[in-house]
Each structure stands twice: as C-alpha cells, then as structure tokens.
Design a binder for these strands. Sequence first.
DNA 1: CTGAAAGCGCTTACAG
DNA 2: CTGAAAGCGCTTACAG
Lengths: 350, 350
Amino acid sequence: MSLTGRARTPSGRPPSIRDVAGVAGVSHQTVSRVINGHPSVRPATRERVEAAIAELGFRRSAAAHALAVGRVRGVTVLTSNTTHHGYAAVLQGVEEAARGASFTVGVSVLESDEPAVVRDAVRRAADSGSGLVVIAYDRPGVRALEAVPEGTPMVAVVETPDGSPPAGSPWVWTDDRAAAHAVTRHLLDLGHATVRHLALPSTTATPDATARVAGWREALRRAGAPAPEPVVAGWTPADGYAAGQRLARDPELTAVLCGNDDLALGVLRALREAGRRVPEDVSVAGFDDAPHSAFLSPSLTTVRLDFAGVGRAAFALLHGLMEQGEPVAPHPVAEPVLIARESTGPAPRA
Amino acid sequence: MSLTGRARTPSGRPPSIRDVAGVAGVSHQTVSRVINGHPSVRPATRERVEAAIAELGFRRSAAAHALAVGRVRGVTVLTSNTTHHGYAAVLQGVEEAARGASFTVGVSVLESDEPAVVRDAVRRAADSGSGLVVIAYDRPGVRALEAVPEGTPMVAVVETPDGSPPAGSPWVWTDDRAAAHAVTRHLLDLGHATVRHLALPSTTATPDATARVAGWREALRRAGAPAPEPVVAGWTPADGYAAGQRLARDPELTAVLCGNDDLALGVLRALREAGRRVPEDVSVAGFDDAPHSAFLSPSLTTVRLDFAGVGRAAFALLHGLMEQGEPVAPHPVAEPVLIARESTGPAPRA
DNA sequence: CTGAAAGCGCTTACAG
DNA sequence: CTGAAAGCGCTTACAG
C-alpha cells in the first residue's frame, strides 16, 4: 500500500466498496453501512470490513456519493472579492470550520453585479450541490443573495440584518452600527465639533442603508453635532488617498472616520502630503483592525471586527442546515471593540 | 421556467438528459452528444435538443459527469495561507482563470507541516477528482508537493525552480532571485556598505536555499560587500516589528531588505520608535509591492511581483494537463520590477 | 444483522 | 448521424 496515493486494485482503478466487500467476505451494502456508521452491523463484521478498508486503502468516491445522495458535503463561498481584509478573513473562517467538519470548500467570485454574471456564478455554485455562504457586503453579493434558488442551503454574511432573510436562510453579521457609533462617539468625546465619514460603496441606492453610515450618523445626531454628507470613497488605500486629498482641502476638517482601515491608510498619506498633522490637526479612525493598522505611523485608531468568527459562524449555521435540515442557533460572534491608538487625539483649539 | 433556480420536472427533480431527450424526441445519448459538442449531430437534431434544453432549464449534473468520466472539471488550491498578499493574489489569479474555463475552484489550507495534516489535506483534495495547484512557498506547501499521489494532475507554484519537478507536473515561479539581486543592487548603488536581510521562514533547513536570500547574497558578493547573517523574521507586520526592534540597536545598520512588504512595514515602525529616520539614517526595502506599500509614509521601495499572473499561469498549465493530457508551454509571467520610492536613499555619511 | 435489486445521471464503446 | 446496452461507485428501500 502506498503511503501517499490511494491504493489501486489489480484492475488499475481505486478500490470500490465491492472490492472491500470481496476482501471482507460481505456484501457491498454492508461496507456502505460501515463507512456510514450505521448502527446495525455486528462488531465482528465491522472489524473485518474496517480491516479490508485499511488493507486496500479504500476511500469513498465523492462523486458517486454525491450522485447517490443528491448533495455534496461542501460549501462554496460566493463573494465579490477574496483579498480585502474583511472578505479574506471571512473566507479563512469558513475554510477553517469546514475543514474541521470534513467539508470541501469552494470559492466563486462575482466579478460584477450584472445580472448575467451574478446568475451564472450562483447557478454554477448551486449546481455543484454544495451549500452556499454568500458574502453580501456589497452590491454583487446582495444580488447573488437574491438569485439563490429556493431550496439551496445557504447562509448570508451581511453588514446589516434588515429586510427579511429568505425563509430558512440564516444571517450572520457583526454589529457595525454599534461599532460605528462607538468610534464616532470616541471622536466626539475628544472635542471634535463633528466627524466626516469616508464611506465604503453602498449595497443599496441610499448610502444610509449601511450600518456603518447609520451608526455614525446616529452618534452625531445624539450629540447634536452637524452631519456632513458622507463621501463614498471605495475600498482600497488608493481610493482613500484620492478621497483624502479632497478632504484635506477643507480647513474645517478635524476628524474623519473611514469605512475601513485601507481607506484610512490612504487618508493618512494624503493628509501628510497636504501638511496636516495626524492627530494634532486631524484625527483619523478606521474600521476592521487589519493586521497592519497597529504598525502604521501614527498607529491607527479603529474598531476590531471578528471576521474570521463570522466565517466560522456562517459555516456552523450552514452545517446545521445541511445535516439536521433545520436552522440552528447562531454561533456567537465577538462584539466589535474600539481600539484607540495614535491617529486620534483632542480636537485642535480653534 | 424560473429565472433563478434550475427548473423542475413534474416529478420534482431537476431535468436529466432523459427528460431533454423525451422533449426533443431523441435518445438521451444524442443529448449527451449535443451538450458535449460532439460534431456528428445533424444540425436540425441539434437545434431540437438545444430548444429542449432551454425549455426545461437543463443543466448537466456535475456529480454524474464526474462519476462517469472519473475526473472533475475543477482545481483545488493547496496552501498554508489565504490572506498574506502573495498567497491571496495567487489564489485570486487561479480563481479568475478557472472561472473563465468554467472550472470549479476549491481551497484547502495546510494548517501545519505535520505529515498527518499534510497527508490528509492532500488526500482529500486528490479524492475530489479535481486538479491541484499547490503553493509551495513554505514548508507545509513543499511537504504537500511531495505527498501528491502520482497521476494526479498538478502544478506547483514555487519560489525557486530547483530540485526536480515531479514527472509531468510543471512549475510556475517569479524570478525572486533576480528581484532580490536588483533591490540589493539598488541599495548598494546608493552607497550603503552592506545590506541586512530580514528573511521569510525558509522552505528548507538552510535559509540560503531560498531564491530571495540567494539573490541578495549574490549581489553582496559581486559588490565585494560583507554578507551579514540573514535573520529569519516571519511573515507579518508584527514579525517585522519584533525583528526591527533588534536590528535598530545595531549602530552599523544603514540598509535593510525585508522578505516582504509586511515585514518592512513593521520594520519602519520599529525604526521610527528607535529614533532612526528612514531613509536618512536607514534605508528600508520590501518585496511584493502590496497594495498599501505606495501609501505608507515613507512610501516603500519594493519589487513588484505578479502573483495574480502566477496564479493564472498555474491554472493554464493545469488546464492543459487535464484537457490535453500533455504538459503545455508555460504561460508568461511578468518579470519582477523594482519600484524605488521614499524609503530608500543615499547612505548616511559616516 | 445482512443481502439482492434498483436507481442516482451521466459517458463510453458498440451497432447500425 | 443516431440508438440500445453496460457501467461509473455509491445509497435507498425492500426482504429475510
């Protein structure tokens, strides 16, 4: 028996349950019972079968299993992106949990929110017979959510849990609203008259529908501070840099909350180039606590979000859906936590 | 016919080629010919079949197809990590190319280089019947490479193309050696007496086996510069920070080449805290040109590596292997290019 | 507790 | 150019 590959029968193909049955002196049906942990198999029989399995290096054919049962022990993640911190960390969490459950994990990226593109991706994912985790942090994701055929086991990773979840399809989210509220509050407490917001692209027509924008606006309202229009920037450091250059021209600007840490990184650079010191002249806060944020100069005030936890929770829910056929109690996800660092400070005196 | 889900036959299950055959008035075998683009089908027949396919919303069962042909139109990426820039970008490239070829993409992470862990992951990936792309930038990846059963279509993404590739399993790489040589040369040309190197963890027992270390050392040797021991740091900003704190104590230090941009980011922070200015006192260079590197302060001198291109090339090779059964000419991957920015400058005068 | 039969939805020769 | 038969490797009732 080879240490690495699957053993081969004399005929050259990998051993099937029939080969195992032959060696163990039972029917292939009994072999099926053993590999599925069916209770009614005599211990002695079970042992003979297990010995034969080990001897032949038998491994169940995933394809045959899938064909027979009509479903696959796998999850595919539908997402518009695999490299931005939040997305990548959710994917990481899903993979980790799926691996623990011996589930296969697939990835399918949504290149745009065009109906044809989204429909195709969703179809292919659903056709594979696996369960779905769709990351609906953006337009393509939200569209994909809507395109998932009924009956497909799915869990959605969303920013805001409003609207109504498709029947039987649970949602997982971090409390971005509370998080945004907390950072904004932190800035206000430092004496800033108001806080500008550099927003991520919205999932909907109205930017206010996103939890981050809503939390920020609410904190402003409660404090009686003016609420300037949020500016939609993008996702990347380059986007933050571009938006930051515009913001830097505003002499009133003393505090800005960015939709994620990458935007904040770009803003930091733009402000420095414009000769505005952080945090002496302008305070900058991010969102997510990406791995590099603690090491920037100045280090970045942000709010830590447990994206990997979200991914693990999403898988746990999906697993419940697929194995028990019933929704399960959601896995707990860590609360967002404010991480105050060097990039925020007292408002400059007027 | 539903716009989203697969249509259902009256019996409640998705339509099979037999259902299509019934509607088109042909045998299911002819339907199979049509969906596989077999040439010998009368145009009129083909049209009838295609109409029936559209009418029923037929989609071939991936499981049945896989069972019949013994292989799956899919690729699974074996990797120790999915979030670090290089790994994430390779994955992104593979996914992009695979999607274009209607291949499924799976991800399996290697949690450690323990034989049992690696063997398990490789087995499961191979069992799925898909082709394999293994990212062998580190120990777990290299171990996985060795554990792939013969006969499994595979392509390896490696740092250095030495040793011997498993028969019929092509390699893809960027020329890290030349890249490291170029950055080191850049630093030497700026008048630095020598260049320290903060290395990524090695894939082997001897750090010199890695292309980046080799290129750096060669540039030093050619210039007749002393070659201080490389220090193995890790992968993350936190690792770079820790190593940077130690380096910062060395009064001789004027130039450091980091194994990647994340390490460099941490080093930048450590140097600043130690009161050593970049680039006036110490020049710092990275490797990879990660998305944030241009926006740091100072912006980071680095070398751009086309990881996504590597991923696309890896898939192209695998695709050739799986469809033509023969190795194919490698897809071109962009040459590394030196990006000189603010973090490197003339050596300070002694 | 165990086995013989039928079926999951395709493809691969083999006829014609 | 098209169809009837057998098979891919499992699971799901149904008997006993």
